[in-house]
């Protein structure tokens, strides 16, 4: 959430006004965060219809619960938490989502590397293309990226999106998803490694 620092005075003033029922202040808050909420809903819920539902529900929840926001946490943390609940809540109990992501060993990976007679490491993990990424990006890769993230269980997806796309810290991510910091770190590791494996056949040089 770059460029949207929240604990500055102006932001807090806006929240205080909205908490007292100032409709214009509330509207400004909605305008400021509608893209953030929608983007996160789409990336975590995936399904377009569910994402729109989560978007609506989130702002209705914000409207109803804004008085409970005490300013002790960042406003964005509080907001992301509501979106995440709307996207994940209904699914949390399903057994499918408890499944963890398989952490496959990368192609050519060895705990101890092979060495030549001079003791130099022999490369067994294939390098990826060195083509600039914006030139690699095309419709096919877009589809592969999309399929890969689709395959991640929602709670891993949420960690990946919060940490690597929304650029939230491990601590904020833990608060948003009610996880411990080590759980966030291990899920992030698994999610990234899984996505990397999915892209590897396409990206290796």
């Amino acid at each position: 959430m770059k460029g949207l620092e929240l604990h500055n005075g102006e932001e807090m003033k806006l929240i205080r006004l909205a908490q007292k029922g100032d409709k214009r202040a509330f509207t400004r808050l909605v305008k400021k965060y509608e893209d953030v909420v929608f983007r996160f809903s789409v990336k975590v819920c995936r399904d377009g219809e569910k994402a729109e539902e989560a978007f609506q529900d989130t702002f209705v929840n914000v409207f109803k619960k804004l008085k409970q926001f005490d300013g002790k946490s960042k406003f964005t943390t509080w907001l992301y938490k509501i979106v995440a609940n709307n996207c994940l809540m209904k699914r949390r109990r399903s057994k499918l989502d408890q499944a963890s992501v398989p952490l496959e060993t990368p192609e050519g990976f060895r705990e101890e590397p092979l060495r030549d007679s001079d003791g130099r490491v022999i490369q067994t993990v294939p390098s990826w293309k060195s083509t600039p990424l914006d030139r690699v990006m095309n419709a096919e890769l877009r589809r592969i990226l999309d399929k890969a993230i689709e395959k991640l269980p929602p709670e891993y997806r949420a960690v990946f999106v919060l940490r690597d796309v929304e650029e939230q810290s491990a601590e904020e991510t833990a608060k948003i998803l009610s996880l411990s910091v080590p759980a966030v770190k291990s899920r992030l590791h698994r999610a990234r490694a899984f996505l990397r494996e999915q892209l590897h056949p396409y990206m290796k040089a």
């Binding site: 990826w128 990424l133 990006m137 890769l141 990226l145 690597d164 796309v165 990234r192 892209l199 990206m203």
Partner: peptide, 9 residues
Amino acid sequence: SMKKTVKLY
């Protein structure tokens, strides 16, 4: 490759 994975997203 890990860095590129994140950058692609």
